[in-house]
Design a protein around this nucleic acid. Structure first.
Lengths: 203, 203
DNA sequence: TGATATTTGTACCGTTTCGCATATTATTGT
DNA sequence: ACAATAATATGCGAAACGGTACAAATATCA
């Protein structure tokens, strides 16, 4: 049910905010924050700079908003996979396969995870980006931990849930890096399979 | 023994190339490639732009050269630790402790790994940076693999060398990310300890 | 001492950057 | 129809950008 807002007063917008945000994110995703100019964003979205400003504030606010959307989508995807009735092994396989699929997409070429691939670089000087990445990572840890605690009997012998959670997050990190730097699909699948086998024990 | 080059013809340089490279790398490390300006580099090194240009070529060449130096140093460090006569568990502990120490250093604040923290972002548009990171990662894989094959009996039961190598590299990646985004020393040590226990079995 | 070679410092070029001021267009309310 | 409101389009301006030309400085070679 879409909220049918009583039409606003002046000239109506000629764009959809969500679509613009997605296109802007695509540019940031390819180039990183610093290398992206407002002209790049205007060209990609079809908006001119004043419209971008009016809708989102400045370049930095737009970037942070795109990051937040990616964070929410990523964490929601994790929670969905771990909420399904699957064996731990199958859940991990599905989670990593989904991550790989997302990391391999891209108009220009494969580009990994938007957050890991661009916001980590920003994190030394940009406190807002740093806090966002840190929160993203610790949420990932928490989601893995909760799932592993729920299925301790499916963990490889001698593997504690907290240890497995650290490796789960580490696997997503290395996949994000490897996808952005050119690893092909089979190579990424091998990494994911190694993680699954180490966490759950040999198949 | 320093090669005592027969004095070159013209006016002698007023700087040491290695020191300049190190200071330039420090700027790139904090800001990333795109956000670093030639003025930043000139200010940090004490050289003016024409001297930088004459000595290293353009900004990109200087960045790539700094990356290569970090890559060589990092891989050499790994080979050194794995060349020492240590148990696998102790070698891994030492390796991760050394990585954490390097990742926590920084004039401004902790900033992770120079290569992972800055060149991954560049990797979509910059083929040279991408190839360098990819080579760095696959060398890490190979070094881990060689060490694990050499000590299969020290691996946790059911863990294959190739799987352990993927997790070793993944651990360095997640440590690099977490250090750059603010994790404190104890948190990083917990991640490293989890990796060691999973690879070698519980202590 | 004078010619040659190399580095350094200043100053500049053309472009791109972000951000905004202003005018125009499109819609609603009366 | 006309005022009020909001979004769009044009284009400006000051600063920063990467990169270089050129002259001054400092060394060696003959």
């Amino acid at each position: 049910m879409v909220q049918n807002e009583p039409r606003r007063r002046g000239r109506p917008r000629s764009f959809d905010e969500g679509q613009v945000l997605e296109k802007a994110r695509g540019v940031f995703w390819n180039l990183g924050y610093a290398a992206t100019s407002l002209d790049d964003l205007a060209a990609a979205t079809g908006l001119n700079r004043p419209s971008l400003y009016a809708a989102f504030g400045d370049k930095h606010a737009l970037y942070i908003r795109a990051l937040k959307e990616s964070r929410d989508a990523g964490l929601a995807g994790m929670r969905q996979v771990f909420g399904a009735e699957l064996s731990l092994r199958d859940a991990l396989k599905m989670l990593f396969a989904g991550a790989i699929a997302a990391y391999m997409k891209g108009d220009i070429g494969q580009r990994g995870c938007f957050i890991i691939g661009t916001a980590v670089t920003q994190s030394v000087e940009d406190a807002e980006a740093r806090a966002l990445v840190a929160g993203f990572v610790s949420e990932m840890d928490a989601i893995f931990l909760e799932r592993f605690e729920r299925a301790q009997n499916e963990l490889a012998p001698g593997v504690a849930p907290a240890q497995a959670a650290a490796m789960g997050t580490a696997t997503l990190h290395t996949l994000a890096i490897r996808a952005r730097t050119g690893d092909d699909h089979p190579a990424l699948k091998r990494v994911a399979a190694a993680a699954v086998d180490i966490i759950c024990g040999p198949a």
